[in-house]
Simulated scan of single mutants.
Amino acid sequence: MLAVENVSIVYRARTGPVQAVSDVSLTLAPGGSLGLVGESGCGKSTLALAALALLPPEARVTAGAILLEGQDLARMPETALRPLRWRRMAYVPQSAQNALVPVHNLRRQFRDTAAAHGMRAAEADARAAALLRRVELDPAVLDRFPHELSGGMRQRAMIALALLFDPALLVADEPTTGLDVIVQRQVVDLLRDLRRERALALLFISHDIGVVAELCEHVAVLYAGMVMESGRTAEVFARPDHPYTMGLQRAFPDIRFPERSVVSIAGYPPRLAAAPVGCPFAPRCPFAEEVCRNATPPLVETSPGRRVACHFADRAEDLRQRAREPALWEAAA
């Protein structure tokens, strides 16, 4: 369904170019689910927008290809892209409050979207009512304005709007951020059920590894615009091979181990205006050695479907054992 092949993306800034994404390759099968995780600024949202050919004017794909069902979106003219959006690929943004037009009710927004792609108003109304029921909203909300809905209701309305033309690919950019845990649960369950019912391919972006573990079959861990580790979600989170993934795990509480302390990763991601030398995670990594600071590790396949960018991937079992000690991360701080 979606193939990101050796893609690099650069933003133009007053201080010079910013390398937001560097040589990233990802695949998403029809009906499959892929989660992108990492800290803020790691390139997750940039990749999401690139996958829809919606990058802002100051950003451009400088290398690689982004293929939707074999068509390279990065090189298609806008006139060819417009028929694909909403019909073959759709987007659920992080903040429905900012995405919905505040001065139009939901009915107007469904109708405007439908009209842009050739659907009549009556059909749009019927389709909108059915979709709102599917996301557990009363169709009466069609006559309400965004500010009259709760955060969870707006997010579910946004999901319904994205499904108006039954797309094959749904890109969801942190759709549970800012919602309370009960509504997060409802949104995650809804996305899972919709994916199964409609054979949706789901690209899900989040900083919350718990939500990704719940929802996605495969995961890619991003840091400084690069893939640090990727593979089947259950395998990556059960036995992480990259120190960054190990650190992310320690930074999240786990109800299965209430006695385990939560430890943060010291420091900050690198500034991307200057290309980092060596492994970008080396300045924060408790296992870093001289080779890490001088040479960028290649992303290599360590087992079928599993890739890791670490000079010490062959020592992952030993690193995992050591990473369990809070004192190790505290010493790195």
Rank of each mutant, 00 (worst) to 15 (best):
G152E: 03
Y244P: 10
E39W: 04
N98S: 12
A199G: 11
Y268H: 12
R107V: 01
V181D: 03
V103A: 12
R196H: 12
S303D: 13
T79S: 14
Q184V: 05
P297K: 15
V92I: 14
M119D: 01
T302I: 15
A116D: 03
T177V: 08
R127E: 09
L55P: 02
V221M: 10
R260K: 14
A116Q: 13
L132T: 05
A74Q: 06
R232P: 00
T245Q: 08
A327F: 05
Q249T: 12
S45F: 06
K44N: 08
S206P: 00
R315P: 00
L215D: 00
A130T: 12
D318T: 14
T177M: 05
R108D: 10
D193T: 13
L81V: 12
D180N: 07
E217H: 11
A275T: 15
R306V: 13
D241A: 14
A323P: 07
F287E: 04
G152S: 07
N6K: 14
P280E: 01
V212A: 10
R144D: 00
V221C: 10
P270T: 10
D314E: 14
V262F: 05
P276R: 02
M153S: 05
S8G: 02
T302Y: 07
P83M: 13
L248N: 04
C42Y: 07
L222P: 01
T113L: 15
G152C: 08
D23Q: 13
R322V: 07
F110E: 02
R87K: 15
S8N: 02
L299K: 11
M119F: 01
C42K: 09
L163R: 02
N98T: 10
L137M: 10
A332N: 06
V308D: 07
M228E: 14
F257R: 15
L132I: 11
F204W: 08
T27R: 15
L200H: 07
N105W: 02
P258F: 08
D208P: 04
L179W: 02
A313S: 13
